[in-house]
Amino acid sequence: MNLYLKKRLRKQKIVFFTISVLAILILVAMMGIIVIIFVKGIRVINWKFLTSLPSFDFYGVPQGGIGPAIVGTFLITGLGLVFSVPLGILGGIFLSEYRTKGKLFNIMRMSVANLAGVPSVVHGLFGMAVFTIFFGLGLSILSASLTLSILALPIVIMVTENAMKNVPDSVREGAFALGAKRWQSALLVVFPAAFSKIMTGVVLSSARIAGETAPILFTGATLYLTYYPHGLNEQFMALPYMIWGLVTTSINISASTPFAYGISIVLIILVAAMNSVAMVSRFVMRKHDVL
């Protein structure tokens, strides 16, 4: 018996060891990807790179910077959120606070999940068909941010729904016991309680939206601008699209690649910053112990 147990424990050790090695290898590979990006791109990063207009010399070597792409990415992400966050929050509130077991409600909930699963390239096609062509907004910041807002909508809805559901039911009962109507409990009590969690989720998803490329391909992104856009009806540059352009369409790809890495660093830092904001706010929430 004792021997048998020993054997089992040894087996466990071996399996766990193997799993650990494999897991660590894969995690190291993932970290390696980030390290490589930094190693390959760090030398192009300087103030001029971040702030000036792009330009190429006679041999197709990029000279300038990515200023318009940074501005463009912030613009379309920000506008995309402006359109989607209010509506998404309202939808999320409905899903969480007006839950029923009805069929219609299930269809509603399913639609959100399905919309969240729509591939971004399809969003791109839809955005082009509706905003660019049908509504005649053309290739523009407005078309692209509306397209992104549709991509963001189900994410915001789910973030809101989950955050609201996390508020304990006893809080709702407290409101109902005072004679609050459903919407009063939802908007005046539960929503404020879930607010910081919702915002954390929105910040996190905005990182995802900022990195999307396919939805803006046919709705207004352009690879090269020698000025900053003046209005929402103009085309724009965006960081992820610029990466793609530099390594697939430029005349001198090998000279452009470090630039693409430099932009990748900027994107990664952006993503990391949003993740940290979310993390810190979670930490603060926990510390203050408000739900």
Partner: peptide, 29 residues
């Protein structure tokens, strides 16, 4: 009905708001 019949629960369930807002809530709504 709930204005005329108030209720207090087993576990305290204040709203995650200020003390003032908690007490004023019923009147405000």
């Amino acid at each position: 009905l709930r204005m005329r019949i108030g209720m207090v629960f087993q576990r305290p369930n204040p709203f995650p708001k200020s003390i003032y807002e908690n007490v004023a809530f019923g009147l405000k709504i």
